[in-house]
Design a protein around this nucleic acid. Structure first.
Length: 572
RNA sequence: GCCAGAGUAGUUCAGUGGUAGAACGUUCCCUUGGUAAGGGAAAGGUCGUGGGUUCAAUUCCCACCUCUGGCUCCA
């Protein structure tokens, strides 16, 4: 184990020691080292808030300076149970440990059930290298069935400089928060009167969405997709047939009752696409059949899980469903993976993790079907030399899936691309195709979203770029700034020419100084600003300022147009 | 859903048991300015919603809604 991990783990014990001193009667949960720091879970005799943290921190520093030693002891379980007789969570842990013995660590007056390792003495820990950062609730053993404990998070590094650096980066990251950027750049907003998790898209955000959708539309052209448009609500009967009413109800908005009928807002698009498949007799020659849709779905996510655009209740999936023969399955999955990764790369996402999610407890289809599909998915992943992790039990009830999670600037992973095999719907809706011998066969169905949802994808895209979207995605690409009122006419000419060529530009001819407009343009992350005055008017040029680079010089308009055209085409 | 914190002008925030203030933004006027804030004036708030306590509530109490940080869950 690395030294810093020992330090973090030891600090968790010191945190618990300090809390024990300050709040007698506290019950201890667990306290591990984690990435960048540590935490400890407590059941406290009274509420604590953020304001209590400095006091706890101070107590910890005092303890560190005392040079407390970490002493390991191996005890029989019965002896340990005596020591922890007032600690119900520790007793529970002792019961779960295999074997007859358990190890404990004694540090001063604090004893913890712990496998270690630790530093020898707190003298090895510089009191300046840690900080308690937040308080949060956390279920005992991570299960909702269990009581909620109070978790105190701390961060710790080997040196003070590293700690300060980390805090600085956190500050920087906060500035990239897509929720803040969304407001500043006037892309989207939430309104409590509309409802939780229901974003509305303002003009600039609407352009961004359209640009992404247009791009995908073009991308899918060569992949054999056809497009569909389906309603936002469907009769309850449809959802009973599909199995959603039975297995997905808790994630759905309550039914809309009208006369004697009940309707549900769609949480998925699949049953509708299934209906298109079913509208004709299908031959093996027709397969694979692919229907794509920007389908807006509504899921009643639990209130506490909502987060900006990355977790909402109403969102638009870049959804598609594919029906194929078992023989076609490996090839189709491979194409999807290849295409999905290519698209992510176009948007600048190079860091991601791939997960293969296996059968959950509740599942449709037979174990044999699941096994077969898993073999195919694994085969394709290996064939494409993609590293993946297994997510045990993480599959959807209807089939196993491959998820691609992209990393945002916080290092958080966000599930975007998902490729799911479905054994359920073909059965439930009795989907068939006619094979070579004229016999009816069951097709395999694949669900797939490459970006996942437009909302989440834009959220992650904003954090990844800090709001400085590439030129091809910028809602406003070019500002034209005349210096004085006598340059307005020339500026307007340029604006008209650029507009005509399809660039998204704005003539900023209001009575403000050039500096002010440039400042505003930088804040708005405008990729290019063209400043025109006497000189430019005379030589028929524009002075170009590029985002984050500053003034890049004077050029002929045609030259500038060539430059940006090129940049847009390359999508850089 | 659970634990904790929060909700005051378009935004960021200050403030108070006697119905409110700043900065930025917005609008108008002056300024015609060469690469990150020119000057002035004005408009703008049932202090999240509903109850309760009180002579009086934005302020205290309760419920709900929404947001934030986590837990759990997910595209």
């Amino acid at each position: 184990m690395k030294k810093i991990e020992k330090i973090r783990h030891s600090l968790a014990h010191i945190l618990a020691y300090a809390v024990q001193k300050l709040y007698p009667g506290v019950k201890f949960g667990i306290g591990p080292a984690i990435e960048n720091g540590f935490y400890y879970d407590f059941e406290l005799p009274r509420k604590i808030t953020q304001e209590d943290l400095p006091k706890i921190e101070e107590t910890m520093r005092k303890l560190l300076k005392e040079g407390i030693e970490f002493k390991k002891k191996i005890l029989k379980k019965e002896e340990a149970e005596k020591i922890f007789k007032d600690q119900p969570y520790k007793l529970e842990l002792i019961k779960e440990i295999e074997g007859e013995n358990v190890s404990i660590y004694e540090s001063g007056e604090f004893i913890d059930l712990c496998a270690g390792p630790h530093v020898k003495s707190t003298k090895e820990i510089n009191p300046e290298i840690f900080k308690l950062v937040k308080i949060a609730g956390a279920y005992w053993k991570g299960s909702e069935e269990n009581p909620m404990l109070t978790r105190i998070y701390g961060i710790a590094f080997e040196t003070k400089e590293e700690l300060e650096n980390y805090l600085r980066i956190q500050e920087e990251i906060e500035k990239r928060d897509h929720r803040v950027l969304g407001q500043k750049l006037e892309l989207f907003l939430f309104d409590s009167e509309i409802g939780a998790g229901l974003p509305i898209w303002m003009p600039k955000g609407a352009i961004l969405r359209k640009l992404i959708q247009d791009f995908l539309f073009e991308e899918l052209k060569n992949e054999g997709y056809e497009w569909a448009v389906t309603p936002h609500i469907g009769n309850l009967n449809l959802w009973k047939t599909s199995g959603h009413w039975e297995l997905y109800r808790e994630n759905m908005y309550s039914p809309i009752k009208i006369d004697e009928e009940e309707y549900l807002l769609k949480p998925m698009n699949c049953p509708f696409h299934v209906k298109i498949y079913k509208s004709k007799i299908r031959s093996y020659k027709d397969l694979p059949i692919k229907y794509a849709e920007f389908g807006t779905v509504y899921r009643y996510e639990r209130s506490g899980t909502l987060h900006g655009l990355t977790r909402v209740r109403g969102f638009t999936q870049d959804d598609a469903h594919i029906w194929c023969t078992p023989e076609q399955l490996p090839n189709e999955i491979e194409k999807l993976l290849k295409h999905g990764l290519k698209i992510l790369k176009t948007f600048g996402f190079k860091e991601y993790n791939i997960y293969l999610a296996t059968r959950p407890e509740k599942f449709a289809g037979t174990e044999k079907m699941w096994k077969k599909a898993m073999v195919v998915l694994k085969y394709v992943l290996r064939k494409r030399h993609l590293n993946y992790q297994v997510d045990p039990g993480g599959g959807v009830f209807y089939g196993p899936k491959i998820d691609i999670k992209i990393k945002d600037c916080l290092g958080r992973e966000w599930q975007c691309t998902t490729i799911q095999v479905d054994f359920n719907l073909p059965e439930r809706f009795d989907l068939t195709y006619v094979d070579k011998k004229g016999k009816k066969k069951r097709p395999i169905m694949i669900h797939r979203a490459l970006l996942g949802s437009i909302e989440r994808f834009i959220g992650v895209l904003l954090e990844n770029t800090g709001g400085a979207l590439p030129l091809w995605l910028s809602p406003e690409q070019i500002w034209i700034i005349p210096i004085g009122s006598r340059h307005k006419k020339y500026a307007k000419e340029i604006d008209s020419r650029l507009q005509l060529l399809g660039f998204r530009c704005q003539l900023r001819d209001e009575n403000e100084t050039v500096s002010k407009k440039i400042r505003e343009g930088e804040i708005q992350k405008i990729p290019y600003m063209l400043v025109v005055g006497d000189k430019e008017m005379k030589s028929k040029t524009v002075r170009v300022r590029q985002r984050q680079k500053g003034d890049i010089g004077e050029m002929k308009l045609a030259e500038f147009i060539e430059k940006v055209k090129n940049e847009i085409e390359k999508k850089t």
